[in-house]
Amino acid sequence: MSSQYHDPANVNNPEHAEHHIVGPGTYIAIYVTLLVFTGITVGAAFIDLGVLNPIIAVGIACIKATIVILFFMHVIYQSKLIKMTVGAGFFTFLILLTMTLTDYISRAWGRW
């Protein structure tokens, strides 16, 4: 009966994930991808796309960051707990961003 409770590593628990070793092949692929995206982001900055310029720059940065988080930082192989923790961090940052912007955007409508 104790084995039913005894679960020190929380093996039957969503907080647990089997440990996974990522090989150098994956890392090389990720490395090349990151360099390619760096090239794209520099190139895109020289083309006039109007309001799309910053959106593309930040979009590419987000893609790169996501790749680093998922593969270099192994989050894709981690438990749901770690995934949620990472999400919570960015979510709180977005709260800081949007809630503060409610003030700045509406302080002088139109002049923002």
């Binding site: 409610t102 003030d103 700045y104 955007i105 509406s106």
Partner: peptide
Amino acid sequence: FLVWEHHMFIMGVSNYSALVF
């Protein structure tokens, strides 16, 4: 985490945003 601006109501923040907070 969603209410901090109520410390700033008289500091010149936007009225609309003050309403939300």
